[in-house]
Design a protein around this nucleic acid. Structure first.
Lengths: 212, 212
DNA sequence: GATCTTAATTTTGTATACATTATCCTGTAA
DNA sequence: TTACAGGATAATGTATACAAAATTAAGATC
C-alpha cells in the first residue's frame, strides 16, 4: 500500500496541490487517504529518498523547495544524461524505431504549425523518451526520470519564444539526421547542445520571473 | 532513528555482510539492531528507493543483486557524470585547489611506486571527489554517489593489470594538464575516456570471473 | 516413495497505543 | 506593548497488537 500512497503523494506534489515548503501533516494526509500512519510514513520516506520531500528530525516532512540554481544544475545533469543516451541510441536504432521517431517528429511539427503547445510538448517528450528506450540502459533512464520529477513543476514554462522554438525544431531535425547516420557521438553532441539551449531558455525564463 | 538504521544497513550491504539476493527478515534485524519494526521498515524502504534492496509485495525485502550488464551500464552513467564534472570544474578551479589535487596526485604516484594499491585507490578516489566538489553541482555529486553505492562491492577489483595502471596514470596526468589550462571541454573529454578505460577494465575483469 | 491438501507457523502489512518532542497559547512581569 | 515563562496542545517518533499473506510441515492419498 505504501507505494500506492507514495504515487498519489507524488502526483499531488507534481500537480502543485501540495505547495513546496508546506508541511506534510501525517494525520491530515492519513484521513484524506484513508490509511493509517504506518504506510503513510513509509510513503513519505520513499519520496524523501527521491528528493521530493525533506525530513527534519522530530519536525516531520515538508514538500521540497527547489532554487533556481538547483533547476539549472538539474538541466546540466539531464544534459549529460541525454547526451549519453544519444551516443548509445544512435548505433542501436532499428529502421522501425527510426520510423516511429520520424512519425512523432512529424506530429510534433504539425502541433507547432497549429500552435498547439501542449501537443508539441507531448510529442517532444515522446521523442526524447524513445531515445532513452533505445539506449537500453535502465539506470540511465531511471536516473533521468528521478531528476525530471524534481523539476516537473516547470511544465508551466509553457510559453516558449518564437526564436527558441525555431532553434529547438532545428536541433530536432539534426537529431534525425544523426539517427539516420547511426552516428552516436554526433547525436550525443546534438542532444547536449539541445539541452544546453533548453537550459539557457529556462535561465532566461527564471530571470524574467524573478524580475517581475 | 530510521536514518541511522538505514546507514547501518547500507554499510552491512556494502561490506558484504548481507549477501545479495538474501532476504531481510525484519524480526532478526530488529533484534540485532535493538529497534522495533517501525523504524526498521522505514529504513528498508529508504534503501529500496536507493536501489540497494528490492521489495516484493507481501514477501518483504531482499538485498538487491546486480548483473554484469547493470555494472557496465553504471559505468556508462558515471562516465557521463564525471565528464560533466570535469567540464564544470576546470574553468572554476582555484590555484589552491589545483595545488591540493597536485599533492594528491603525487601521493597517488608514491603509492603506485610502493605498490600500495589500497593507498593508490584512496588518493585516486580523493582526486575524483575533489573534481566533483569543485564542479559545485550538488545534484551531480549526489547522483554519482548513489550510483557508486550500488556498485561499491567492486572494491574487490583490487587487482589491476600493469598496462591498465599505466594508462590510468597517464590519463590522470592529462587531467592535471587540462585543469591547469582551465580547459573544461578538454577535462571532460579526458574524464569520459578515463571512465571508459575503467569500464573496459571492469568488463575484462567480469569476463575473467565468469569464465572461471 | 511422491504428490497434493491442509493445518501450523512464520513473516509481512496495517492499525493503534504510548512516549517524546515541538509548537502554540496564555499569563505575568518589565 | 513587548518579552519571556510555563503549561496545554498537537505533532512526530517508537513500540506493540492485530490482520493477512506466505512459507513450512505434516498427513493423507495414490
Amino acid at each position: 500500500m505504501h507505494l500506492e500512497v507514495a504515487d498519489r503523494l507524488r502526483e499531488m506534489i507534481e500537480r502543485g496541490e501540495l505547495i513546496p515548503g508546506s508541511k506534510l501533516i501525517e494525520k491530515d494526509l492519513c484521513q484524506s487517504f484513508g490509511v493509517s500512519r504506518t504506510p503513510m510514513r513509509e510513503a513519505i520516506r520513499v519520496l524523501a529518498a527521491d528528493g521530493l520531500v525533506v525530513l527534519t528530525p522530530n519536525r516531520g516532512a515538508s514538500v521540497a523547495t527547489i532554487t533556481e540554481a538547483q533547476i539549472l544544475d538539474s538541466f546540466l545533469v539531464i544534459g549529460a544524461m541525454e547526451g549519453l543516451a544519444g551516443e548509445l541510441a544512435a548505433p542501436r536504432i532499428t529502421d522501425a524505431q527510426l520510423d516511429d521517431i520520424r512519425a512523432m517528429h512529424s506530429a510534433m511539427l504539425e502541433c507547432r504549425a497549429a500552435d498547439d503547445l501542449d501537443g508539441y510538448y507531448v510529442y517532444n517528450r515522446q521523442i526524447h523518451d524513445a531515445i532513452f528506450d533505445i539506449a537500453d540502459n535502465a539506470l540511465l533512464k531511471e536516473t533521468r526520470r528521478i531528476i525530471f520529477t524534481r523539476i516537473i513543476k516547470l511544465r508551466f514554462i509553457a510559453r516558449i519564444a518564437e526564436d527558441e522554438w525555431q532553434i529547438a525544431i532545428k536541433e530536432h531535425e539534426e537529431m534525425l539526421v544523426a539517427l539516420e547516420a547511426r552516428n552516436g557521438p554526433q547525436l550525443g553532441a546534438i542532444l547536449r547542445r539541445h539541452l544546453e539551449s533548453k537550459r539557457i531558455q529556462v535561465a532566461r525564463w527564471l530571470q524574467r520571473q524573478s524580475s517581475i
